[in-house]
Amino acid sequence: MTADIAKDSARPRDFAQGVRDSVPVVVAAMPFGLLFGALAVENNFSVFEAVLMSATIFAGASQMVGIDLFGQKVAPWLIVLSILAVNFRHVLYSATTGRRIAHWGPVQRLLGFFMLVDPMFAEAERRGETHGTVSFGWYMGAALPLYICWIAEAWLGALFGNLVPDPHALGIDFLLPIYFLGLVMSFRKRSFWLPVVLMSAAVSMLAYRTVGSPWHVSIGAIAGVALAAIMAPDARKGRQAR
């Protein structure tokens, strides 16, 4: 633990590095933050409600699903359940990243978990892989710009939504899948990477066709995770896990 304390004392530098690491994430998420604000107002949200949703839920895909269902006048409990369904994968993030931030204080951890969105999870895992530990300073440096911009984008999108240019022609609607593919590729050094990717891809596509969205995310993810767990013992024999 002394190593962790030593690393945490380098907080200003860690924070600055976190801010630098957040730049591509902020850029990739920006169109969606603006788009969310614009669509929210189109679906009869007030500007305040759009900003409140981004500030409290802070999870793009589930917010989009939420306002879409809201526009279709679906029962409130069903909207809430759908938001939960879309975000259910965060349970896996929580279990995974929880191991890396176990040395933080209780309040720090609550704050960290609150901001554990897809890119923060992926960046934290990458940071843990390269630096051995994830400091609170680095995490906040990466998460705060993302969070603040996300809220500001909802506000700007809600105010000036009709000024957002045609998202399809600019490829904006497909930037996140590209960014997520880049993240998938960045984990290719991990054990069982290719079998896990192939399994999750096949099962998620099958589930998308049969069970439907958003459950394909959790179902596909669990299939890949289960495959890694099944393949694990033989390959790791004699090597201390972690």
Partner: peptide, 26 residues
């Protein structure tokens, strides 16, 4: 933490992120 659970958790990033890409590709 059981080694299998450990291996499963280490597979979470690739597994989840893949499910966000695959149907979009499809």
């Amino acid at each position: 933490i059981h080694p299998r659970v450990e291996a499963g958790l280490n597979a979470v990033p690739a597994a989840v992120l893949t499910t966000l890409v695959a149907p979009a590709a499809m």
